[in-house]
Design a protein around this nucleic acid. Structure first.
Lengths: 215, 215
DNA sequence: CTCCGCATGTAAGCTGTTACATGATTCA
DNA sequence: TGAATCATGTAACAGCTTACATGCGGAG
């Protein structure tokens, strides 16, 4: 029940069309909330029937027309109500963490010491090694995002102590994004250090420039 | 599509019934994955039809019988396959962060300088103050959980360098939970410091011992 | 006897994902 | 002409939440 309010916040900063909102969710707001364009279009429709926003068709040169949404006074009222409401803690999920906890279950390739051995000739493939590569991949992504956030922070907020109002709010949330990425980098680095007995590709740092975009 | 694998990991550590799994998800595994008992029961049923687990009814004295699930060889095989698969980054969500970003939108109570002023006599109630209280509440919860994790870590893993196998895996994931809570505490502390012009209850530290459990 | 905890489940509804559809305009 | 991008949408499904249901046994 929070995508609507995330859209209200974004639209209150500046009126926008569905696709423009989708791009914002890929960037700034998306640090802490994500949504696909289908979800956004559907939710905008519902918000308009609820009277929180109004749409206006805006013609463009050399482009199809777009529907620009604007927050109504009723929408602002709802936003204020929501802001004052106590917030339930959002559950944190990490599929990677679940995998890391169960990693030892992949360390017995075809050991038939227990009753669960399967007679089929499946390839062992050592999940532990794959998992370490996975961790390195995630670490590289978090490090890259951290660098990106830091650059944006230095560019947009050169003097944090002079900030106030909406600028201060946005700065502090960006700080949260930076601290979150720092935590991820710290954890995964500590994790890899615990398995650092074998260097695993000592010639390459593997921390940056991975061009496998995976689709 | 990952709850099934989280259940496989938990069941591979030790066979359990649905309710026992629910309790585990409230504790250790639940650091990074949550599930209600309805979800768990339903998923266990599906996993049994898929052949990943088998159930056995176990009678108990002074208690209703329970269905204890155990991972099959097919389940172990699936677990190994899943462990070696690349992991998609889990999107991070925080409703609180979205609120903090939009906090300034609640700072104009009934200001009629723009066209969106509503003539209804709604109570102002200052969302900014409510939000700060909300942040303090979340900070207290994270600090409490951090303390809890740290105690469990010191109790169960007094000598981390001596660990190996599944113990090492579980320790490193617990470290991740600790680092995550440290990040939350650091961010929210920094946030409050930015608004520390008015002390807001100077007689109480408000960092610990909040007994308002809020259900 | 009533209430509570254990243990498992059903049903309805909302949220989010995936795949596909449509029509326009620009670029090669 | 064919492909790519812009812009909005539909449809089907999977996942998750919320509320309620059932039956047993023990405590007060």
């Amino acid at each position: 029940m929070a995508l609507e309010h995330a859209l209200l916040v974004s639209l209150a900063e500046r009126a926008a069309s569905g696709l423009e909102l989708t791009r914002r969710f890929d960037a700034s707001i998306g640090f802490f909330w994500q949504a696909s364009h289908q979800q956004i279009y559907r939710t905008l429709k519902r918000m308009e029937t609820d009277g929180w926003v109004v749409s206006e068709e805006v013609a463009q040169s050399k482009r199809p027309a777009k529907l620009v949404y604007e927050v109504t006074s009723s929408g602002h009222q709802e936003l204020r109500r929501w802001l004052g409401e106590p917030t339930a803690p959002t559950p944190q999920r990490s599929e990677l963490a679940v995998k890391l906890r169960g990693a030892w279950l992949g360390d017995t390739p075809a050991d038939s010491s227990d009753a669960t051995a399967d007679p089929t000739g499946t390839t062992p493939a050592t999940p532990r090694r794959e998992l370490l590569a996975d961790v390195r991949r995630h670490l590289a992504e978090h490090a890259a995002r951290l660098e990106h956030y830091r650059q944006g922070c230095a560019r947009d907020y050169p003097d944090p102590r002079a900030l106030s109002g909406g600028d201060l709010d946005r700065y502090l949330v960006l700080r949260g994004g930076i601290l979150q990425e720092e935590y991820q980098v710290a954890w995964l680095t500590e994790y890899l250090a615990a398995f650092a007995t074998e260097p695993t590709e000592p010639t390459e740092p593997a921390e940056h420039d991975r061009s496998e975009t995976h689709r």
